[in-house]
């Protein structure tokens, strides 16, 4: 196992932080040892520009979720370094990582995004409440109006539809104005109409509110909402597509399937 030393000076980091909301250099993640050794990320360099909506795609086991988890500080790296803004994740202990997630990162998961005991509004402000910060009223109002949930703020998650719940989760991710938002299959559990409204909102947050969003998905039409699509396979970034459309993404994905089948046949 080789350790990749990253010789980046503080000045470089600062300069980079102006341009990029998050960056990763030589990201490597290995699970297990010996026979069970699996390389989930294999020396990946990646960066996410501020105000850009990126979709990460790839077949199952390509490492797309691992990439997201490692970038977001949910999982540790075997080697390499990742930055959120100007903060290097690798040097942080659990407390530092927790604070980073709380203050700099927004999360949207596929399911179970909300605490059932809290109302929609309480869920939205939860990260700031945990931090003991007062939300920026005007920003919060803007976010709430953008997701269109003003009427339902006092409701508990069980009283909301799946699409509404995901929009509350989006609002929560945005409410603290994080450097970057990571969304893990945010529309995976939704019907296409609810999914479309969530995706439209994410795009609006990037275009009009200047947010940065990274979304893992396997749905080509979801990916078409993004500004660019990164394709992963076997722990490596194998392709990048700017201004994607659903059809083009689908075509590219089919190529993976064929490659996969060819590979299987070869064995």
């Amino acid at each position: 196992m080789t350790t990749v030393q990253q010789a980046t000076t503080a000045a470089d980091a600062l300069a980079a932080a102006h341009t990029y909301a998050a960056r990763g250099a030589a990201l490597t993640k290995v699970y297990g040892h010996g026979d069970t050794r699996v390389v989930a990320l294999d020396d990946v360099d990646v960066d996410f520009r501020r105000g850009e909506f990126t979709a990460i795609m790839g077949p199952s086991g390509s490492g797309k979720s691992t990439l997201m988890h490692c970038m977001a500080g949910l999982d540790g790296l075997t080697s390499g370094q990742a930055w959120i803004g100007e903060t290097a994740i690798g040097g942080l202990d659990d407390k530092g990582l927790t604070r980073l997630r709380r203050d700099k990162v927004g999360f949207i998961f596929q399911a179970f995004n909300l605490l059932p005991t809290l109302t929609a509004l309480e869920n939205i402000t939860l990260p700031m409440d945990i931090a003991g910060r007062t939300p920026d009223r005007a920003w919060l109002d803007g976010v709430i109006d953008a997701v269109g949930l003003r009427e339902r703020l006092g409701h508990r998650p069980t009283e909301l539809s799946g699409g509404q719940q995901q929009r509350v989760a989006c609002a929560r991710a945005l409410a603290s104005r994080p450097d970057i938002i990571f969304a893990d299959e945010p529309t995976g559990n939704l019907d296409s109409r609810s999914g479309a409204s969530v995706l439209a909102f994410l795009r609006t947050s990037v275009r009009e509110m200047g947010q940065t969003v990274v979304m893992v998905t396997h749905d080509p039409s979801a990916a078409s909402y993004a500004d660019r699509v990164l394709f992963l396979a076997d722990g490596r970034i194998v392709d990048e597509m700017l201004a994607p459309t659903a059809d083009r993404v689908l075509e590219r994905m089919k190529a993976f399937d064929t490659a996969g089948r060819v590979a299987t046949k070869e064995i």
């Binding site: 407390k95 927790t98 997630r101 709380r102 998961f109 605490l115 945990i130 931090a131």
Partner: peptide
């Protein structure tokens, strides 16, 4: 368990 995971993901410290 999942609530705890969520809380930790969005920034709740162990002590909290």
């Amino acid at each position: 368990t999942r609530e705890i995971g969520l809380l930790r993901a969005i920034g709740m410290t162990r002590e909290q």
